[in-house]
Amino acid sequence: MESMTMETYLWTTLGAFLSLCIFSFLYKDNPFYKFAEHLVAGLAAGYFVIILWHNGLKPNLFDYVGDGNFYLLWLDSSHPWYMVPAFLGALMWTRFSRKWSWVSRWPMAIYIGIGVGLSIPLGMRNAVNMQLFSTMRPMAWDNFLGNGYLDPTSGFSHLLIFVGMLAALFYFFFSKEHKGVFNGVAKFGIGILMIGFGATFGFTVMARISLFIQRIQKLGEWSSISWTDGAFTAIWLIVCGSFIAVGIYEFIKYMRNRGQTKAAA
């Protein structure tokens, strides 16, 4: 085990303590959880402001206009046109005034205009047309079963995608009553959609468990480091002991309440 200074250990302990605070929400909402939650929100906001200054405003604006004069709003700098987007950005702050908030619509309109102009052609081509072309590609009859299970280049996959896409669209066609063959196809479409949702659900479960695994790994590391030094062990015992004490207290309270509820019933 690599040696660790007390300073580093205290930071690690703080991380472990906050992890336990967050997990305590699984039992019920409590002040430990609230403290950790507010700390995360505050830290993220503060971090973002500093990052935005050092990575955004400074290198992309003030470094360019820095040779100008502050009292002339940097308009005498070597890059005076950089003040145009800066001015538009500043206008966004008029949102905080009831009287002048309409001014913020101008920079917003320009921003939306640029965004829409960029996104419509590129979005249409890459997120819509490409997917349509992929659905309508020639069927690979000569390679129907493909190489390995669910090979995306196989004819079977092409057929499944084409039929599944049509069936799913049938389900969302509400201008005709879902009866007979139409109903059968729509039901097949629901099945296809359910498989899709099931895959997403499975991935989501995996994702949530992964978050817990990483915390266990970190808590495990913290726990093993804690036994390398007497002072570390003492801190470890205090943190864990506090949580265990609160846990036992809450459990006794829960069992008492349960007994009282049963007696009342």
Partner: peptide, 8 residues
């Protein structure tokens, strides 16, 4: 990507 995004 995260697992939640994977299938999409």
């Amino acid at each position: 990507m995260t697992g939640v995004m994977g299938a999409d």
